[in-house]
Simulated scan of single mutants.
Amino acid sequence: MSIQGTEEVHVIPNSERNPGVPLETSWFDQIAVNTPAAERRAATLTSRRTVKKEWQAAWLVNAVRCMDLTTLAGDDTPERVRRLCAKARKPIADHIMADLGLRELHAGAVCVYPAMVGTAVKALEGTGVPVASVATGFPAGLMPLNLRLAEILYAVDHGAHEIDIVITRAHVLDGNWQALYDEVSEMREACGQAHMKAILATGDLKTLRNIYKASMVAMQAGADFIKTSTGKEGVNATLPVSLVMVRALRDYGDRTGHRVGFKPAGGMKTAKDALAWQILMKEELGNDWLKPDLFRLGASSMLGDIERQLEHHVTGRYAASSRHAIA
């Protein structure tokens, strides 16, 4: 069975960098966010657009190629990282791939701690799957700036293609936009040729206005992606928060002509979630933001349910979840 509208897919590294612009607080200092309206818009996204049968399968396959498979546990080992890399190289079982009419598919990236970057780079050599590393004192970011920059340099020196940095939340809560801009700019410089994803930790920022402002400052400072969460906050990715962030993306693009990517992370576990966030991107930003160079899903646990749904699509039967282990 071939999926209508689905072609052989490849991860293409984001070749378009966001050079950033000087800090311009007038772009956001008077911004107002209608929270009830944002919540209503987010709630109606999935009810206004539905995808069924082979089209749903195609959207789920697309979610896989946009997924950052991640292991950020205190008991990570090189062997666990190698298993995750093997899953990134071949995220869907061979018999499902054959029934879908797909020859090749891999994840968007593998994301690990800096100490595991070398292991991941070696395991993914020649596959085209980039290695991302969290850095800058993930997840809290409460380290001296020189140590956070050193962590970026360490990860880049060991081969990381992408760096997921965390911002100082206090700068947002205090409205100290110059300090936030300067910090993110220095991190961007330390990343060199590696693409930088700025994690805003939106669950800690209190208001949607703060989230919009932090998004805009991070992009002005040169972030190539903005990312919702570390996955360690009490509240992680939600559709209303994501809606505000992608509106900021759109506004920044309209002002500068530069395209910035988006990565929701944390709290997303099901194939239904994968569909919901793709619908958001299509509705708000268009088809270009359904590709891995501008959209990533930070939700490794979601992959097991996606694979289970795809097996149901091709066989008509649901497999036990244990058949689709992540790593």
Rank of each mutant, 00 (worst) to 15 (best):
R247Q: 15
R250D: 14
M268A: 13
L249F: 07
D251R: 08
H258P: 06
A276I: 03
D273H: 09
Y252V: 11
D273P: 06
V246D: 06
L249N: 12
A271G: 14
A271Q: 01
G253F: 05
L275I: 15
A276W: 00
D251L: 04
K272C: 01
F262V: 06
K263F: 10
L275F: 04
P264V: 02
R259Y: 12
R247D: 15
K269S: 08
D254W: 06
R255T: 02
A276Y: 03
G266C: 04
R255M: 11
G261Q: 06
R247F: 08
R259V: 05
G261I: 01
K269I: 09
A271P: 01
A265I: 01
M268R: 04
T256A: 07
T256R: 09
V260P: 04
T270R: 10
L249R: 03
A276L: 11
L275W: 01
F262W: 07
V246N: 07
A265R: 01
R255E: 12
R255Y: 10
K263I: 01
R259E: 09
V260N: 03
D254L: 15
D273E: 05
Y252F: 15
D254H: 12
K272I: 07
G253T: 14
T270K: 09
R250V: 07
P264H: 03
D254E: 15
A265W: 02
M268W: 03
A276Q: 12
A274G: 14
A248G: 06
G266P: 02
G257I: 07
A271V: 01
K263N: 01
P264W: 00
K263T: 07
R255Q: 12
G253K: 13
V260R: 04
A271M: 00
R259S: 14
A271N: 04
D251Q: 10
L249P: 11
T270Y: 01
H258Q: 13
G266M: 00
A265E: 10
F262M: 03
D273T: 04
A274N: 03
D251W: 11
F262E: 09
A248D: 05
A276C: 07
A276E: 11
R247M: 09
G266V: 05
A274K: 06
A248P: 12
K269F: 11
H258S: 14
R250H: 13
R259G: 04
G267T: 08
V260W: 05
A274D: 00
A274C: 12
R255L: 14
A274P: 06
P264E: 09
A276T: 05
